[in-house]
Computed example of a mutant assay.
Amino acid sequence: MFDRLYEESEQGRVRFLGFTTNDIRYDFGIVYTSMFFGKPLVICMQTGRSSLLGPYDLENVQHLREVFRLPSEEEAKDVADILHFYLPNPSLETEYE
């Protein structure tokens, strides 16, 4: 037995983004959704690791470093700087519209 919490379908928008920093190449998929308070699902295509991220989450570079297993704080800052341009600023109302 289980209690179903939700089952939603929506037409999604996906962006694929590849870039390099000084030392490393990155390939990310960004799945935009109205679920999860409007935070998109960001997926590292090299490792398969993913996280729901919003602009405020990018301020925590230690979290980014842990989630995507980035080698240094500098790399995490570089990734945050790039992703900042692609993540919407969600509102709490998005989940309940």
Rank of each mutant, 00 (worst) to 15 (best):
F16H: 15
Q46T: 03
V14E: 10
R65D: 01
P55R: 15
T94A: 14
D23N: 11
R65P: 04
V79G: 07
E7K: 01
Y56H: 11
E59A: 05
L92S: 03
N22S: 14
L87T: 12
G48I: 06
P88E: 09
D3C: 10
Y6P: 00
N89T: 14
I30P: 01
V31G: 09
S51Q: 12
L53Q: 01
I30F: 00
V67H: 01
C44I: 00
D57G: 15
E95G: 00
L52F: 15
D3K: 15
H84N: 10
G54C: 12
G48K: 08
S50L: 02
S50W: 01
Q11C: 02
F28W: 05
E8G: 00
L58S: 10
R13I: 15
A80F: 07
T33Q: 09
L70W: 12
Y26F: 15
C44T: 00
Y32F: 13
E75S: 13
Y56C: 06
L83W: 00
L5N: 06
L17M: 05
Y56E: 14
Q11S: 08
Y86I: 05
V14A: 06
F68H: 03
L58F: 08
T47Y: 06
P40Q: 02
Y86A: 09
R49S: 06
R65F: 00
L41G: 05
G29W: 01
E73M: 11
R13G: 06
L87G: 14
Y56M: 07
F2R: 09
E7P: 00
Q11N: 09
F85N: 06
S50K: 04
D57I: 02
V14T: 13
Y26V: 09
P90W: 02
L92R: 03
L17I: 09
E10L: 03
P90H: 03
M35R: 12
S51G: 04
L17C: 09
D27A: 05
L17W: 02
Q62D: 05
C44A: 13
D27R: 13
R15P: 03
N60K: 12
N22V: 07
T33A: 02
E97I: 04
S72L: 07
P88V: 10
S34F: 06
N60H: 13
N22P: 00
L53N: 02
